[in-house]
Design a protein around this nucleic acid. Structure first.
Lengths: 345, 345
DNA sequence: CTGAAAGCGCTTACAG
DNA sequence: CTGAAAGCGCTTACAG
């Protein structure tokens, strides 16, 4: 491996001068600068990031916190790879690399904060923390910038889908198709992550807006975000009532389970029940009918989170919370129903 | 941030002694060792990995090559996050961290090799390279260990699903259900990655084994691995012939597209056509019927790849190619048909 | 515009 | 069993 000392020896300049030329810092003459750059190129010089990081105390590394935890029996972040990929595109062209932040340091168990100090990461992206994890909350005191994707954390700048508004739009859509009896199966509302609560609020707001009485009999909660949870919740719902023509599911995975329960009862989607999900999971394209859903803009979430981090690196002020609109993805699981008024004609 | 100098000052030992105690190297007395370790703990010492990496020339970093490229219109690695998660679990408890290897170095465009030298990664995992990418092939000359998951690369140790055998098993299964006319829609066979070719070979081998004549009219190739490709290929197949009762799809995503084409023709799965896929994608659980498929053991692929890398770090010899068996995942898209013989009874 | 000196925090021979 | 010296490859004041 060739170093700046090699370039210094060959060009006749001193190592600090080589360093300045390579980094574009310090006022060198254009001539020496191009000379040095050329030599570096000819020699196939690659900087040693460990040395650079040691002296500058900046690693050009961004730590990612992503736990593939199964505490909640199968909970997984469905949008993870999309968000991460889009985040990565932005930070890479800015010269940063992505590092998974673990809680191991050799065989020792450590916090994310310790690991961040160990690697001297310049910033952190929080993706899929264990809900309420103290090791994550502690990150707010990290002396370098953090952002969170889709998961509000006190003291950390967050980019998140506009859950409440999008849920309201989902129900608006069902109403526009003529539905008046709309059930809701929500995700776990007791978690620190507010997605399930916000979507539920959006549901209620939409009903109210359209003058539909809120009926708690039409709402069922799944303690988990997975399809089995959706299935069980739908069964509980059916046990109580069959008095609805549409159902809004708090996410797509729940919707898949709900669909099973509906079919098990001999009912058809969308003929008997219109079903709308949330996320825009690709899987929903392959069910029959394909699942209509509120699509989370993972590209925007990922790239905005990255841009925020870069802005923070540049010392700019950024808002604490950024909401990204979702979009309706009309596929085949909802249908227009005759309203009572039309019936009467 | 506290350093070994701080610990040295406080305990009265020299920095090298502190280093030896911390690393468990060098013959220190048990007393000083515990004394130093205790002091380190009390002070909340975290080593600076940049300094350590600079002096040892080892970073305890493993580079991951994963390109989310869309060259082939929508090609994505469906098993990516599963394999990566399982890989990560193993290498993290061994004290390594995962770094995404990009082809950027600041604003400069570089090869993976250069980036690896820049970060001094101790090893590399190749996950989803652009097929035939010279920057990947070049990695075989990297002076540190590399492994590849699911993609054979000359000179690099690879862990891959036993495609040929698993494809044969898929067709065996169809035969066991009484099918004798079995179509095959294969993925792109012209790529450097041999998966489509190997699965096609398995298909032929199974036919031969069961004394079924190979009929090229029953085989159609999709130029891409995505569902649109499967859809189009199935339409071409139907245009030519309807003379089959079962179909083996080279992967699940193709199968989803095939399913659409089948239904579009007014045929039902599995009543008219039994369909089997390959991958074990979770999405297949949510279609109706759920997709029967050959499941790739992503946990095994990821963890084996990690173990191989660790073995290489330890200087052990490892095989160049490791094949992981797939498993049949019986869901609902295949059914038993009456054989001619049974008919006669 | 360029360079000599010192430092970033650790480890590796080597000596005693 | 412990420490003084030198080095890993770079950068940052500072001086000229």
């Amino acid at each position: 491996m060739i170093t700046i000392y090699d370039i210094a020896r060959i060009t006749g300049f001193s190592p600090p001068t080589i360093s300045k030329a390579l980094n574009g810092t310090g006022g060198l003459s254009a001539a020496t600068r191009t000379l040095i750059l050329q030599a570096a190129k000819d020699l196939g010089y690659t900087p040693n990031m460990n040395a650079r990081a040691l002296s500058t105390n900046r690693s050009h590394l961004i730590g990612v916190i992503y736990e593939d935890h199964y505490m909640l029996k199968g909970f997984k972040h469905p949008l993870f790879s999309d968000i991460l990929n889009n985040f990565r595109k932005v930070i890479e062209i800015a010269g940063y690399d992505l590092l998974f932040l673990s809680r191991n340091l050799g065989s020792r168990r450590v916090s994310y904060l310790e690991h961040s100090n160990y690697r001297k990461v310049d910033g952190i992206l929080v993706m899929n923390p264990v809900p309420g994890d103290p090791d994550v909350l502690e990150l707010a005191s990290f002396d370098r910038p953090c952002v969170s994707a889709n998961e509000p954390i006190p003291g950390i700048c967050t980019v998140v889908t506009e859950n409440r508004v999008a849920a309201e739009a989902a129900v608006d859509y069902l109403v526009s198709l003529g539905h008046r009896s709309i059930a809701h199966i929500c995700g776990p509302r007791n978690l620190s992550a507010p997605a399930a609560r916000e979507r539920f609020e959006g549901y209620r707001a939409a009903l109210e807006k359209h003058g539909i009485r809120y009926d708690e009999n039409l709402v069922e909660e799944s303690p988990f975000w997975h399809s089995e949870g959706g299935y069980e919740a739908a069964r509980r719902l059916f046990y109580r009532t069959r008095d609805f023509t549409a159902l809004f599911a708090s996410n797509d995975t729940l919707a898949f389970g709900i669909k099973e329960a509906v079919e098990e009862r001999g009912l058809s989607i969308p003929d008997d029940i219109s079903l709308i999900g949330f996320d825009g999971d690709e899987s929903g394209m392959y069910t029959s009918p394909a699942l209509t859903t509120m699509w989370q803009n993972t590209e925007e979430i990922g790239s905005r989170a990255a841009m925020l981090l870069l802005q923070k690196f540049a010392g700019e002020d950024v808002p604490e919370l950024i909401k990204i609109p979702a979009r309706l993805l009309e596929r085949g699981s909802c249908r227009k129903v005759a309203t009572k008024f039309e019936h009467g004609l």
